Amino acid sequence: YDEVAAQGEVVRKLKAEKSPKAKINEAVECLLSLKAQYKEKTGKEYIPGQPP
């Protein structure tokens, strides 16, 4: 859960800094992968601010 939240912060920071699109896309792919792992382990969708 904490990893997903941390990666979400990374994506937000990159977007706020107007980073190159390729770098943002890479961070988003990582975030989506973490969300998929979270769902696989818990059986639930990741919802920000609602730990399992």
Rank of each mutant, 00 (worst) to 15 (best):
K39H: 03
G43S: 04
K15L: 09
A6Y: 05
L34G: 07
P48V: 07
E45R: 04
A22D: 11
Y38A: 04
P48T: 10
T42S: 11
D2M: 04
Y1W: 03
L31H: 06
L31P: 08
G43R: 04
G8W: 15
A27T: 02
P51K: 11
A27Q: 05
V4L: 02
D2Y: 13
Q37W: 00
E40T: 07
E17I: 10
P51M: 09
P51N: 08
L14G: 05
A16N: 11
G49Y: 07
P52W: 07
I24G: 02
A22V: 06
S19T: 01
Y46E: 04
K18I: 04
Q37Y: 05
E40S: 08
E40I: 14
R12M: 07
K35C: 04
K18E: 08
P20L: 05
L31D: 10
A5T: 12
V4N: 01
K35Y: 01
R12W: 03
E45S: 07
A5D: 07
L31Q: 09
A6N: 09
A6L: 15
P52A: 07
E3S: 08
E26T: 06
N25P: 01
G8V: 14
P48K: 07
G8Y: 15
K44S: 15
G43A: 06
P48S: 12
P20M: 05
K35A: 06
R12L: 10
P48E: 14
L31C: 02
K13P: 02
V10Y: 08
S33C: 06
I24Y: 12
Q7P: 00
P52Q: 01
K15M: 13
T42Y: 15
K21W: 04
A5V: 08
A36L: 10
V10D: 03
E29V: 01
R12I: 02
L34F: 03
K41N: 10
P20D: 15
I47F: 09
V10F: 12
K44P: 15
Q7E: 03
E29T: 10
E17Q: 13
Q37M: 09
K13M: 09
E3T: 15
E29Q: 13
L31M: 09
Q7D: 00
E9G: 07
T42W: 10
G49Q: 10
S33I: 08
K13S: 02
Q37F: 02
K23S: 00
L14C: 01
A5C: 12
E40H: 09
A36D: 10
D2I: 12
V10P: 04
D2G: 08
K13E: 01
A22I: 13
E17W: 01
Q37K: 08
K39P: 01
L14E: 15
V28P: 05
V10G: 02
I24C: 03
A22Y: 07
C30Q: 14
I24M: 09
Q7W: 00
E3M: 15
A36E: 09
L34E: 12
K13W: 01
E29C: 05
V4S: 00
E29K: 14
L14F: 09
Y38L: 02
K35I: 04
Q7S: 01
